[in-house]
Amino acid sequence: MRKIDKDGLLLCDMQGKVFELSVTAQDNSSEIFIRRFMNSEVAKQLDNMAVLQSNIQAADILSLIDEEYGKSNYGSVKYTPNELYWIGYLYRYFAYTYDKTSVQVYKIVKPKELRGLFLPYHTMDPSQAIDRILEAKGLANDSVDEEKRQFQIFKRIREKKLR
C-alpha cells in the first residue's frame, strides 16, 4: 500500500472537481457519468499520473469524456455536487493508495453504494472510509496483504521448480 503524497492529493482533488462539475456540465445521470469516467482513457492517465505532466483542467477532462463516448442524456438521477466531489476524491484516493486502476476500484465499489455511505463517511479520513468499505466487503487490508504474500510464495515455489 502506497502512502498518499502531494501528487496523490493533487490527483484526488482534480478528480473530485471533475465529478463535481459533471452535475452541471453533463446531461446524463451521475451514475452513467461515473461509469464512463472510470472506464475512460482519461482515468488511465490519472492512474499512471501522466495527467500531472499536463495543464489539463476539469472542464477539459469532461470534454475528453464526451469525445470518447459521445454526448448522452441517458438517465436523470443527479447526485449533489458535494456527493460527487467526495465520490471522485475517494475513488482516486483508493486507486492511488492501493495501486489499483480506476476500473478495478469501480468494480469493487459502485457509485450507488458510495452515495449511500456519503453521510456517515464523508467526514472521515479517506483511508479510514476505504478501510471500512473493504472490511464490510470482506476485503480488509489483511486479506489484500495476505493475497500478495501468498502470490509471492507461489512465485518462489514456481521459480524453484523451473530451475
Rank of each mutant, 00 (worst) to 15 (best):
K3L: 13
I4E: 07
I4W: 05
D5T: 08
K6G: 10
G8S: 03
G8I: 03
C12L: 01
M14S: 06
Q15R: 07
Q15I: 07
G16T: 00
F19Q: 02
E20C: 04
E20N: 09
L21H: 13
S22G: 02
S22I: 03
V23G: 00
V23S: 01
T24N: 03
T24C: 09
A25V: 03
A25E: 04
Q26E: 13
N28D: 12
S30R: 01
E31W: 07
F33C: 03
R35G: 08
R35A: 15
R36G: 08
E41A: 14
K44C: 07
K44Y: 08
N48K: 01
S54Y: 01
I56T: 09
Q57K: 11
A58D: 01
A59F: 12
D60Y: 01
D60T: 00
L62T: 06
L64E: 15
D66T: 15
E68A: 02
E68Q: 09
E68L: 03
Y69V: 02
N73S: 15
Y74Q: 12
G75L: 04
G75Q: 04
S76E: 12
V77E: 15
Y79M: 15
T80K: 05
T80F: 01
T80D: 04
E83N: 11
L84K: 05
Y85F: 12
W86Y: 04
I87S: 00
I87H: 02
G88I: 01
Y91Q: 03
Y91E: 05
R92E: 12
R92Y: 02
F94A: 04
F94G: 03
A95L: 04
Y96A: 09
T97G: 14
Y98D: 01
Y98N: 07
D99N: 14
D99M: 11
V103H: 07
V103L: 10
V105F: 04
I108Q: 09
I108V: 15
V109H: 03
V109M: 11
K110H: 14
E113Q: 08
R115M: 14
G116T: 06
G116I: 03
L117R: 11
P120M: 06
P120K: 06
H122W: 10
H122F: 06
M124F: 11
P126E: 10
P126Y: 10
I130V: 12
R132V: 04
I133T: 06
K137A: 02
L139W: 04
A140G: 14
A140H: 10
N141G: 13
S143Q: 12
D145C: 11
E146F: 14
R149W: 08
R149C: 00
Q150W: 09
Q150V: 06
F151G: 04
I153K: 09
F154G: 11
K155C: 06
R156Q: 11
I157S: 09
I157E: 13
I157N: 12
R158C: 15
R158W: 12
E159V: 05
E159Q: 11
K160Y: 09
K161T: 11
K161P: 06
R163T: 13
R163C: 13
